[in-house]
Design a protein around this nucleic acid. Structure first.
Length: 671
DNA sequence: GGCCATTTGGC
DNA sequence: CCAAATGGC
């Protein structure tokens, strides 16, 4: 029991009462003040999009009403600095404890660490918990105690850990409310007038809120899960779990998902139900990918903005905003791509397979920088999730150790995912009358067929914006250029003549300023001659560079660029936050452990357990207390920390066992 | 059916 | 890259 004062339970992306360890701890300790702080400016570029905010609004309302039924309610605060707001809440409620659940995106890692420091300094007992993952990232390591760098090995390890994920906690039966009479809530505004109309449609298809999430889970497990494997290729069928937005906001606990699915797994295994078993494995893999996205983000906190592999550092990305716009509007001339983009636009939802199709098209055919696409996904997806999307786009772009070959262009035609063309017809009514034979490649259809279907290519449906063959040729050319740049850069550095070519006037690729949700869907006359190529890496430092302690470093040109470029990227209203983040990291949090055997993996962040947990090294396989004893402390490994973000050694190596990321043999044949 | 070459899936 | 699937003969 606490010594009198109440505890604050800080809700973030854990908007549920069931299996919520922070809430459970608060309830156990006595009176509880449940708080949600809306501070979207802290997210920088990643201010949540319209549909995501719609979800959040409804999820919070749901959470509030269930808290009310248990005896308290949700205090809401509008803020530009979460930690200060927490402090205010502490002062106005007389709270003596703070409980929250872990997040693993880079901003949260820093902010939560700061929250812990600032509040601890005020005499508040702060404890944090795992509510989002089966296993904490620092508990999953290879035989040498190093983090995995490929998904398959990571997931294999997760499934063979010496201890199971924690069993889910029941929701509290009653909550004693702390005194919030001097802690007024702010009204939170999640949508403006112009957004209300579009948002109204969302409610027809989705029910945010933790108990709805629970129903969705039950429905899925008792229904579509069995056929998950069989149906996973269909672009159109309602056979996915539809849990991702619920999971993003923590309305349902992955541990509960995992346990329930496992029960089915055992059941079906006993029955010899092969299809069921395969489905379970596949579905669990998608849960695993979500885990892995957090793992990646934790171990490589820049992964949402910079490739993990450096082999594309000099790739000349095509900075063509016309292409970008055509892609967003679904006017590329590839029906499956266009149908997907129109569905995304209209509904905020996209089947996983179609996400792969449109993003692969984006990177390989259009050769646009993946971060643009990722940002658009962030703005439009109902389940927008920084860690998952970074993983997905990096995978597609071939910048992960286990990613796809970069020079392989997937066929953007939908014979597999949409064999009967139903999906295309739904989202592209202008093609509805085209026979299935031609629906995925209308440019090959005989003129008479097109006429009969009322299609005039280039007029009411576009010709392919880029032919696949020319995309392949362009890709080879671009790679050749990349190697030349790379060689030139290496030569320049060896000669000591300044920096490499690509960096001489290096400005990171910024987001186009005109990304807008409300597109006018007029045809875009694209002029390829305006195409600009850019010869440097896609590093767009925003928060990562704020972690770099510029003033203490060797003033390398790279670093100066980083700092300067950062100015253009980060909204000015974040400067205060940046400053404080920097301060946080400047303080010697913990003695840094430099594990040299990690050097080859370039692990930029060294994690240690909190001081009170001195026995457990990160490689320990001992069972962790769920009880908040372990708080992740995030500690830059000095002094090479900043180098990790700029030098080549910051990139991961290719995985030795993995396929080559580039198909050298084929390239040399064509080149 | 077997033997090749080619494509596809793999997070 | 590699394994598995597919396709042609």
């Amino acid at each position: 029991m606490s010594g009198g004062g109440c505890s604050i339970v800080w809700f973030r992306r854990d908007l549920r009462l069931e299996d919520n360890p922070a809430l459970a701890a608060g309830v156990r300790a006595g009176a509880v003040v449940a708080v949600f702080i809306w501070a979207p400016e802290e997210e920088g570029h990643y201010y949540p999009g319209r549909v995501s905010r719609w979800w959040l609004k409804n999820s919070l309302a749901h959470l509030d009403s269930s808290l009310r039924s248990l005896g308290t309610f949700l205090v809401t605060k509008r803020s530009t600095d979460s930690v200060s707001s927490l402090l205010e809440v502490v002062k106005s409620t007389g709270a003596t404890q703070l409980f929250f659940n872990h997040l693993y995106d880079p901003l949260s890692l820093v902010r939560d660490h700061r929250a812990k420091e600032v509040l601890s300094a005020q005499g508040i007992a702060v404890r944090s918990f795992n509510a989002d993952l089966l296993y904490e990232p620092w508990d999953v390591n290879d035989a040498h105690g190093c983090p995995f760098t490929t998904f398959a090995s990571f997931w294999e390890r997760c499934l063979s850990m010496p201890y199971d994920p924690e069993a889910p906690l029941l929701p509290p039966k009653r909550i004693i409310s702390g005194d919030v009479s001097r802690c007024p809530s702010d009204a939170l505004i999640f949508e403006d007038e112009s957004e209300k109309g579009s948002n109204a449609l969302l409610a027809r298809a989705w029910s945010p809120g933790w108990s709805n999430a629970d129903k969705a889970l039950t429905t899925f497990i008792n229904g579509p899960l069995l056929e998950y494997s069989k149906n996973r290729r269909k672009a159109d069928s309602a056979t996915t779990s539809f849990l991702s937005p619920h999971l993003h906001f923590g309305e349902v606990s992955v541990r509960k998902v995992f346990h329930l699915v496992r029960i089915k797994q055992v059941l079906w295994a006993n029955e010899g139900n092969k299809a069921g078993e395969e489905s379970v494995n596949l579905f669990l893999k998608s849960i695993g990918l979500r885990e892995y996205s957090r793992y990646l983000s934790f171990n490589h906190p820049y992964s949402h903005e910079r490739p993990l592999l450096g082999h594309l550092k000099y790739f000349p990305w095509v900075l063509n905003e016309g292409y970008f716009k055509v892609w967003r509007q679904g006017r590329t001339g590839y029906p499956l791509v266009d149908a997907g983009m129109r569905e995304l636009w209209a509904t905020g939802w996209l089947h996983d397979r179609i996400r792969v199709v449109v993003s692969s098209f984006f990177v390989k055919v259009l050769q646009l920088p993946w971060r643009w696409g990722m940002k658009y996904f962030w703005d439009t997806l109902l389940d927008a999730d920084l860690e998952s999307d970074a993983l997905g786009w990096q995978y597609i772009s071939g910048t992960l150790p286990d990613g796809r070959e970069f020079d392989r262009i997937d066929n953007p035609q939908g014979y597999k995912f949409d064999p009967n063309g139903e999906y295309v017809r739904r989202w592209l009514p202008e093609l509805a009358r085209l026979p299935t034979e031609w629906i995925h490649h209308p440019w090959n259809a005989p003129e008479s067929v097109l006429q009969a279907a009322g299609i005039e290519l280039g007029s009411n449906y576009p010709l392919p914006i880029v032919e696949i063959d020319s995309a392949k040729a362009r890709l080879q050319e671009a790679l050749l250029e990349m190697w030349q740049q790379e060689a030139a850069s290496r030569a320049a550095i060896e000669n000591g003549t300044e920096e490499g070519l690509g960096e001489s006037d290096s400005t990171p690729i910024a987001f186009p300023q005109d990304i807008q949700m409300e597109e006018n869907h007029e045809p875009v006359r694209n002029n390829p001659s305006t195409t600009i190529r850019r010869y440097e890496d896609q590093m767009v430092p925003s928060m990562t560079s704020s972690l770099v302690r510029v003033e203490e470093e060797e003033p390398s040109l790279d670093l100066r660029n980083l700092a300067v470029d950062n100015r253009g990227e980060v909204p000015t209203n974040l400067n205060g936050n940046q400053e404080s983040m920097r301060n946080t990291l400047n303080q010697p949090v913990l003695q840094t452990v430099r594990r040299d055997n990690l050097a080859q993996f370039g692990t930029p962040i060294v994690l240690r357990s909190a001081p009170e947990d001195s026995t457990a090294e990160s490689s320990s396989s001992s069972r962790r207390e769920r009880d908040g004893g372990v708080v992740p402390v995030w500690s830059p490994s000095t002094p090479s920390y900043s180098e990790q973000f700029v030098g080549d050694e910051s990139y991961l190596p290719r995985h030795p066992q993995s396929h080559q990321i580039l198909n050298w043999r084929r390239l040399s044949q064509t080149g």
